[in-house]
């Protein structure tokens, strides 16, 4: 299947001052989406889908989101059925809480918590390519991905969903950790699809198609 989507769709990348927004924007454009980066609530609400990127520490990210009113906006869009994709820290933020740097509350979209990766003697942060084991092949996020398929990870923390049915895929680094989730219209990946070559582009194209589908349905 081509990584290109069949019809263009507006996807907005939520700008709260953290994460490599430009790389995400270019990867979305590459698969045929119309990507923009912004924090204006009206513009974000107008998009068919949102991407929450993120690199950095959880508590500061939540502070930034709150200061911009974006925590409420993201919750509102998920509740309205708009597809939202959290990438790396952007996925972790969707959980109830994280223990990073003394701990902080998250967006509470996906029940569960975020805690340090128990990598044993392995090096942290975990940086590199790991294969994802797909546990929910029915999730449109992983549609038509090859059975064995690696993604690029950079992280020291990992999400622990409370509900097994929210887990789309796992990977392993010292321990098995959750690397893709879906709950309602929220999708999250611990890895960086924008840096995961053809497999990552295919996953972003899947998300763009989910956005197209949501537009048609809505």
């Amino acid at each position: 299947m081509s990584p290109l989507i069949e019809e263009p769709v507006e996807i907005a990348i939520v700008d709260y001052g953290m994460g490599n927004r430009r790389s995400v924007e270019k990867a979305l454009e590459h698969v045929g989406a119309r990507a923009s980066i912004g924090r204006d609530h009206t513009e974000l609400r107008a998009a068919a889908g949102l991407v929450v990127p993120g690199v950095g520490a959880f508590p500061r990210a939540m502070e930034n989101l709150r200061a911009l009113g974006l925590d409420e906006l993201i919750r509102e869009r998920v509740a309205a059925g708009t597809p939202v994709l959290g990438i790396c820290l952007g996925m972790q933020l969707a959980f109830d809480s994280s223990s990073e740097l003394g701990g902080a509350e998250g967006l509470g979209i996906v029940p569960g918590e975020v805690r340090a990766l128990a990598a044993g003697e392995l090096k942290l942060p975990h940086i590199g390519w790991n294969e994802m084991t797909i546990l929910r092949p029915d999730s449109p996020l992983v549609d038509s991905l090859p059975q064995r398929c690696a993604f690029y990870h950079v992280h020291s923390f990992a999400a622990v969903p409370a509900a097994a049915e929210d887990v789309v895929g796992t990977a392993e680094y010292g321990e098995a950790f959750v690397t893709a989730v879906q709950r309602g219209s929220f999708y999250g990946v611990q890895f960086h699809p924008e840096k995961s070559s053809a497999a990552g582009l295919r996953l972003l194209a899947n998300f763009a198609r989910i956005c197209v589908g949501a537009t048609v349905a809505g």
Binding site: W129, N130, E131, T133, A164, T170, A171, E172, Y173, F177
Partner: peptide, 11 residues
């Protein structure tokens, strides 16, 4: 974490 997750290696 629910038990039984398996993963694959670091490349």
């Amino acid at each position: 974490m629910p038990k039984g997750y398996r993963g694959r290696m670091h490349f």
